[in-house]
Design a protein around this nucleic acid. Sequence first.
DNA 1: CTTAAGTACTGCAACGTTGTATAGTCCCTT
DNA 2: AAGGGACTATACAACGTTGCAGTACTTAAG
Lengths: 336, 336
Amino acid sequence: MPPGLKDVAARAGVSIKTVSNVVNGYVHVAPATRARVQAAIDALGYVPNIAARQLRSGRSGVIALAVPELQSPYFAEIAGLIVQAAERRSWTVLIDQTDGQAERERDLVEGLRRHAIDGLIFSPLALAGEELALRDGTPMVLLGERVWHGPADHVAIDNTAAAADATRHLTSLGRRRIAAIGVQDKPSAVTAHQRLAGYRAALASAGLPTDPALEMAAEGFHRADGAAAMARLLDLETPPDAVFCFNDLLALGALRTLLSRGVSVPGDVAVIGFDDIEDGRFSTPTLSTIAPDAPRIAQLAVDLLAERLGDGPAAAGAPRELRVDHRLVARESTAG
Amino acid sequence: MPPGLKDVAARAGVSIKTVSNVVNGYVHVAPATRARVQAAIDALGYVPNIAARQLRSGRSGVIALAVPELQSPYFAEIAGLIVQAAERRSWTVLIDQTDGQAERERDLVEGLRRHAIDGLIFSPLALAGEELALRDGTPMVLLGERVWHGPADHVAIDNTAAAADATRHLTSLGRRRIAAIGVQDKPSAVTAHQRLAGYRAALASAGLPTDPALEMAAEGFHRADGAAAMARLLDLETPPDAVFCFNDLLALGALRTLLSRGVSVPGDVAVIGFDDIEDGRFSTPTLSTIAPDAPRIAQLAVDLLAERLGDGPAAAGAPRELRVDHRLVARESTAG
DNA sequence: CTTAAGTACTGCAACGTTGTATAGTCCCTT
DNA sequence: AAGGGACTATACAACGTTGCAGTACTTAAG
């Protein structure tokens, strides 16, 4: 029903291939011909059929982005930024939500969409290490904090160092009994492991002991988990005087528990989070946090994918690992 | 490079079409043949080429969802729910971000992606009325609060009634000087207009005067806008004793201003929002709000699209308008 | 004056899939 | 015993696009 090259060609009195050449900006087309074809295109409202183009060329112009959940503000922000970065290369982004389920992540990796996408930007939660090796050759960029030396390109902040920065910020305020919220056991929870390691390292270098009772587990990384963990911390015989939450949502949940129990923040307990989501800038008190350079993460991820997709010599080669900066943002929840 | 029907057919010793029949679950295939073909499919790891399928059938199995911004928790939630609903029909969702820009919305409507998507679920911000008529025949479902009797199918709550409910909640608490935050002038801001109308109606039916000084404009619907508007309200000679914010982000911003200025909530000023985003359940104080039945909105939108896409008799016909329930959620920010 | 190189355009085949048409086999009815 | 289905399988032609090969003409170089 919609017009094709054929219809445009008929109207402009040229061959199908010439129309194709005009559409694709091929150089050797006489200006007069080009104008005539263009007029026909405009008149008919011709739009190239992506499916046919893809069938022919093998490229779809679509990249997929797979994140654990869009509801999480951090991932929503990253998603928005990646869409913008991809747009600059006129790529379309297909957003996939894995809900952190191993099976859905595996489906992705094993190429359920295979032919439909040119590349994949993937922030895995449940899968780690070799399980992430893509079966087909679709280029992939791993996102977020992840084990180094994985099987694919990789963009991340130095997660352990960032966690140490956050913890050091608390020790530098004179806090001695510093809890952590967000500990996770399962071996695939690399993010949690790295942040725990950073936390412990900072404690050690400040000459403080690590106390298992202060390392609180969290099922997920949501407000409710943070609120529950904080409640357990307050029920300890000696509650902490500071908390490092492994992300901002946990911290906001913890904040809620603290305030509803009448604990002063930062007076009695200082709180710091991780991610620098917008909510933390408007909570009461505003939330200190670690701010990853999210725009740069998005841009680099798209750039890496572009390199792999390009026909240049950089298309192949060993996986690259790019580190992105982070910075400490001190707000009211840790105000001196 | 990846195997096609041809390769599977060769390995199983049948024709290409028979393999196609097996893949598509066609009934009249002998069990023995089916098993042999299936074995070949598994052995080769065959995956249907979506592009070819689409080229042939005209259907891509992809629907687009266009929202103003993913960063906004309400839209992120809706997006997640729609992805889930679409998954049950094994559709893929392509998420588009319009940033509320008229031009990008127009591009969508005029069919920039045309061949690539089977249908569109669209939450317009900048466009209204007849401008929303799709040029090509792609089925579209409009989302969110919008003018009735538009040119397409439409799922929404009764926006005006919901705003009235929120306002009535405040009057029933004995508040007399009730402000509104989120007023917008531009004619396309239908959401703001409807909520303002509901607010005024509820005031009138409670015998309260409307005061232009209490109807605060907001450029966008973000925390910063709410914070700024609340600051202006507090600077009035007679500040309000309650505020109805046109969404939860505005309310959270307002909350922030109130608390940082030492105003008691709900003691001095009661605050109610709109959308029931997760943040409001963990803010301090927790946020009273209007909760639209978001899962139902998502499900209905996908169902409507499915009807239009189906081959049944319901595929054509006049635009349908489905109303979805909402309820009032009273939390601490308005606690009696 | 020939040859080579460049320009402007065209025709054909193929990408992988599915709808339609067709043909053969078998079994059940009358 | 013949006719009519239901079942099983196949061949062929599209869907709209682009790569490749090729034609015809023009200009530049030797």
